[in-house]
């Protein structure tokens, strides 16, 4: 894990292994609050689900609970400090389909939503959120680039960076 390089509301981090990607997710999971929404974007195999597994642990989802890919199930629900909605929009096309899976209820709940492939349904993105773009650098290295939206997005990024620095 390299040292975060902060540029305004953007942050660029490199991860050199699955484990390190999971740790980054774990640090974010520790600072997430009810109502937070995090979007994960990037190609197949870029590390989104791996990161989400870390978030789950950071949120206190027990180790023995398997946090698998939600691609087929669309939504996996895990219980930790807050309820974690692990959503994958890979197979969806529009807002109407999102409504069918109860997406707005998830966003309005006391849980936390980690959404993979948010770019598939951009109009469903809430105003306040943190987005992380994953890119494959080489076989094991991934680059994570963030964008914040709204005040909560910024605060979340600040708290997450502090957590990362502390580790």
């Amino acid at each position: 894990m390299s040292v975060p390089d902060r540029r305004g509301e953007r942050l660029c981090v490199r991860s050199d292994s699955d484990e390190s990607t999971r740790r980054l997710g774990g640090a974010l999971g520790e600072v997430l609050r009810a109502g937070d929404v995090v979007g994960l974007e990037g190609d197949l195999g870029a590390g989104k689900t791996c990161f989400a597994q870390g978030v789950a642990r950071g949120l206190g989802v027990p180790e023995e609970r398997r946090v698998g890919s939600p691609t087929y199930t669309i939504v996996n629900v895990h219980t930790g400090r807050h309820t974690l909605y692990h959503v994958d929009l890979y197979r969806l096309r529009d807002v109407q389909e999102l409504e069918e899976i109860g997406f707005s209820e998830m966003l309005e709940s006391d849980g936390v939503a980690v959404v993979e492939w948010f770019e598939r349904v951009p109009e469903a993105k809430p105003l306040e959120r943190l987005e992380i773009q994953f890119a494959i650098v080489d076989a094991t290295t991934r680059q994570l680039q963030t964008r914040t939206f709204g005040k909560r997005g910024q605060t979340l990024l600040t708290e997450w960076s502090k957590k990362m620095g502390a580790k």
Partner: peptide
């Protein structure tokens, strides 16, 4: 035992897509 990430068929589908 169960998968910790992708299901086997999901891996086939995603690789097929790639």
């Amino acid at each position: 035992g169960a998968t910790r990430d992708d299901a086997a068929g999901e891996a086939f589908d995603k690789v097929g897509k790639l």
